[in-house]
Design a protein around this nucleic acid. Structure first.
Lengths: 239, 239
DNA sequence: TCAGTTTATTAGTATAAACTAAGTGCCGGT
DNA sequence: ACCGGCACTTAGTTTATACTAATAAACTGA
């Protein structure tokens, strides 16, 4: 049972795949993913993260700076993008071919992404015509592991009429974050810019599934980094 | 953490689902599934089976007669049929909609059956038009848990031209079993009856994927219980 | 700068599921 | 009738992954 006799490249477990994915998301825009952020994303206690972080950095998938956080190595990034490709292709397949809607699709894909083979994913991708975007408008990494990096614009600069996905909130201020959360303005939400007042005035938006209106002042709008969502129809079902 | 405070009806684990499935198959034609049979089907060691058997009979999914074997309870049977429905619908979906062939499909379905939701299975079933048979010709249990019991005929009685799945070998004799295994005549194999000599003569068959011919004498042919496979095309791909 | 808070880590425990090694029960043959 | 071998079970260990409780490090604000 020495370490030398063990398989040098064992398949990743479900948990490892999940950890890599959230670390990718948390560290993609710059810096480090912290223990507590990872813990809250995975709905797990911080010590569980500490334990996994140790294992992942032992196996070379992440780099860990104690009390700072972690970042993916090239290998870890490759694996994370592989999972993201699977997830997004599954979401698109389920919506386009099986009538899933937006909300239901994420949970289903979240479970399936660990079980499907690469072969199946590529067959789904072919059936879908090698798509580039998932139903949420997020880019699908290629099988080779390349991903189109979305460039982000502050809401304050987005043109009226644009459909956007809120991606990042550029502050750590708790009061602002709390207010934004109350307004439903959290990363991942889809919004449409409905109006903007002149002379650095506020931006009016509507939240995407519900159509609820919101008015966002200039200062806050500058903190809301968004990605423009391609307007093509991705097969969102009527039902 | 007393037993009383725990969830009375926790979701089944992957392993439990697999155990129930093989117990169903081993005990479906009468009697008990034995520890060693279960172990060899699941490719685990017999003590692992003993441990699981204890757990499953504690939770009321099986009944265990020590040194005899196990049988499913009504609840265990329900769960087993649920998994078999999932498996067979997945196999059919993968072959019909995604160009899988016969061989590849089983392993893929084996992994997916634990991950898909009931909703997804029913959507696939709808997309396939509520099918009754999987690509191997096996009957698909209904969502309510009913399954058409296939009636078996001995190979010696099957008509020339019939396509059959070998289901059961009606002997425990080691020499015969060894010979049959050498000939590739094991449960699950597909065969076509190509000829039969008169006056209780031997039956000529060909094995299904390969087309290899075999001649089976009358006595052996009476031991080979087969199910007739519906001849409809289930989307087996050209490639 | 130091006290209090937040964040991270260590230590020890639990559960699921496998394993090996060792002991027990049953059955068939002489 | 008993004895050897196979099937089965028990006991104890391993690995992965979670947990709680307690400790340590880093940050923050007056």
């Amino acid at each position: 049972m020495s370490a030398l006799t063990r398989d040098a490249n064992p398949p990743l477990t479900r948990s490892v795949e999940d950890y890599l994915k959230v670390i990718y998301h948390l560290s993609s825009q710059g810096g480090f993913a912290t223990t507590c952020d990872i813990a809250s994303r995975l709905e797990v206690a911080p010590p569980s993260v500490s334990g996994m972080v140790k294992r992942l950095s032992d196996t070379g998938l992440i780099e860990h700076v104690p009390y700072r956080g972690v970042q993916l190595t090239a290998q870890g990034r490759r694996e994370a993008l592989r999972m993201i490709r699977r997830h997004r292709i599954l979401e698109l397949f389920l919506t386009q071919q099986l009538g899933y809607d937006w909300d239901g699709v994420h949970a289903e894909a979240e479970r399936l992404e660990h079980a499907v083979s690469d072969v199946l994913i590529e067959r789904m991708a072919s059936a879908l015509g090698q798509p580039q975007y998932d139903p949420h408008g997020d880019p699908i990494p290629t099988a080779a592991g390349d991903i189109e990096e979305a460039e982000l614009v502050p809401l304050s600069d987005a043109p009226v009429g644009a459909k956007l996905e809120l991606r990042q909130v550029g502050t750590q201020d708790a009061a602002r974050l709390r207010y934004l959360a109350e307004q439903g303005l959290t990363p991942g939400v889809l919004i449409v810019v409905s109006d903007r007042q002149p002379f650095n005035g506020p931006t009016a938006v509507s939240l995407a599934p519900s159509g609820d209106p919101r008015i966002v002042g200039r200062d806050l709008a500058q903190l809301l980094w968004c990605r423009e969502v391609p307007v093509e129809d991705h097969g969102r079902p009527a039902a």
